[in-house]
Design a protein around this nucleic acid. Structure first.
Lengths: 341, 341
DNA sequence: AACGTTCTATGAAACGATTCATGAACCGAT
DNA sequence: ATCGGTTCATGAATCGTTTCATAGAACGTT
């Protein structure tokens, strides 16, 4: 029923080594032999068994990626970039979704290791340094989406989150806001912590500015909405006048809550700025100011770094690629264009 | 360097079969033997080689999925559902992105077949009936996201697109619109064709209603934006007063174009309805009316059907699961709540 | 005719797991 | 002491590839 390379060999009347050569080194085989073998493969409907290939050859052609939240378009962009780049190198990308659960993250790492992937690309939730070093010993190249990694151990891709956080809050202060709130979390995640640090630095530069930190368990539209409702419950005087969220989803949730209530006007009463610049930020009820990061490029670069490490078996020096974020101003921190006219 | 099951066996001082039994049938092995072996595995950092496992056992533990556009949140939802369900059965999901290219679609199918996945879950672009029958012969279960499949050959999951299209345009007609436009494509894709058919049926029920079809190459925000600009270029009298788009992304693009121009008011001049009800539809500049489909459920059900077929080696009768779409009315086809008040 | 070179086909060995027929060890009953 | 029954460890065979040392064929050169 299932056709092996040996069946093809018998059918064509050549040795099994020749069929393998046709598949892997066609230039070492006589041209019409190649034609005959390919014909036989077609006739029998032979499909190479990759497990056997991998077992013998000792390497897989896949790269594993773990994202924290596949429904976040920013991660979707990253995954798309990663997939495209993997394809360039003739590799395949397997994406796992950790849902921000450290346990699922570890399970995927185990799974990827059993698959003998060539590399793993991930934004770790927990500190995985030890586990990742183990991976490296098993010839799997880990590449992180995270800034603060010990330089010698891993390649990494990151945005300058501290600077991004600074840019965001500096902008809020520049348009005259003083009661700043940061929404996001868990702040134990390094990138988020950095954004908060940058925010704090900006606030500290202005004498009468204050920073309130609203720590959340995750970064979703739903979380944004419930924080928004919580803000709505407050006395008007106790509300912030400028809010910076750790990503765009949370900001979109806030916008929904505020707009639906009809009682808080954006940006008049509260100005809002997000992070990532996902495609939907432009299309929001109130188009969202944000800090832009090149999501797809993160993916492309991450996979490139894996390929670099894999393809240079001798000396490989780890690289830290840092992308500079960029402030994008839209209506959520500016007057409406109409108002200006 | 690399630790095999044999190394573990030697290290612990047992036979290699015993180690395998500990891994696969621990209940047939004496309890403290299990403990000793596990200890050895830990000490040596042994990780099972899945390629070898799969070669010998003859089956993989993975399911392949091909999506047409990973940046569409609807597909992201579907993939998440599929992944969750795969995990329930102890399987792993591999997702490939065809970018609506029939060629990439075929490449992924080949790849999945080499991997000997247990099943493939996909919304085919081309007619793949023959190729998928080949897959089945090789013991790979194909499940389609598509309605019109010959009942006997495959399981499938689908929304009732024809009914959805009808609901959408019926709603536009109900609020008094008569010059209807359908935006989407390519209409050769079955689901899209069905939505158009439903739209046409609704239009035909009303004497003075007309339907204009704007065929597009893909279904993205960018396409929506450019169709929007094209509408803006028209004489006011030649514009539609109700538009139905084949998915929400296109509708969001239209909204962006119209709102940015400040010359077309939604829904006053043009009412708009999309399809899918992605999370961002609620948060749009003008919250978008749409036809809701349960994306995650599509994924869950699709993978369930694969598991059903795989786990019942004897008789399996193919099932067609049809989800009923649901009309969701928001501001893009209604007066603003303010206006009503 | 003998030799060296180049080209190409051959098939046994190996990769690392699972499977399964075999039998050793033990136990309780006769 | 023997026997039947259980429990459990053993290791050779096997899965389908790739690799590689070997050798046959063909050709040109001396």
């Amino acid at each position: 029923m299932v056709v092996s390379i040996r069946d093809v060999a018998e059918h064509v009347g050549v040795s099994l080594g020749t069929v393998s050569n046709v598949l892997n080194r066609p230039n070492t085989v006589n041209a019409d032999m190649v034609a005959r073998v390919l014909e036989g493969i077609r006739e029998l409907g032979y499909v190479r068994n990759d497990a056997a290939r991998q077992l013998r050859a000792g390497n897989s052609r896949t790269i594993g990626m773990i994202v924290q939240d596949s429904s976040n378009p920013f991660f979707a962009d990253m995954a798309r970039g990663a997939e495209d780049q993997a394809e360039v190198g003739g590799r395949m990308l397997i994406v796992g979704n950790s849902h921000q659960s450290a346990e699922r993250e570890l399970r995927y790492i185990d799974l990827f290791e059993e698959q003998r992937v060539q590399g793993v690309f991930l934004a770790p939730i927990d500190d995985l340094t030890e586990r990742l070093k183990q991976l490296r010993q098993h010839r799997i190249a880990p590449v992180l989406v995270q800034r603060r990694v010990s330089l010698d151990d891993f390649c990494s891709v990151a945005g300058d989150d501290e600077h991004g956080g600074y840019l965001a809050v500096k902008h809020l202060l520049d348009i005259g806001r003083r009661r700043i709130a940061f929404v996001g979390g868990p702040v134990s995640i390094i990138g988020i912590e950095d954004r908060l640090t940058g925010a704090r630095r900006a606030v500290d530069e202005v004498a009468d500015a204050t920073l309130e930190v609203i720590d959340t368990a995750e970064l979703t539209v739903g979380v944004g909405r419930s924080v928004g409702e919580q803000i709505l419950d407050r006395d008007r005087s106790r509300r912030p006048d400028g809010m910076f969220t750790a990503n765009d989803l949370v900001a979109l949730g806030l916008i929904q809550a505020f707009v639906m209530s009809h009682s808080i006007r954006i940006p008049d009463e509260i100005a809002l700025i997000g992070y990532d610049d996902i495609a939907f930020a432009t299309a929001a009820v109130v188009p969202l100011s944000t800090i832009r990061q090149p999501g797809a490029m993160f993916g492309v670069m991450g996979v490139s770094l894996i390929q670099e490490e894999v393809d240079s078996p001798g000396g490989h020096t780890h690289r830290q690629v840092l992308f500079q974020p960029e402030l994008v101003i839209r209506e959520s921190t500016a007057g409406f264009p109409d108002a200006a006219a």
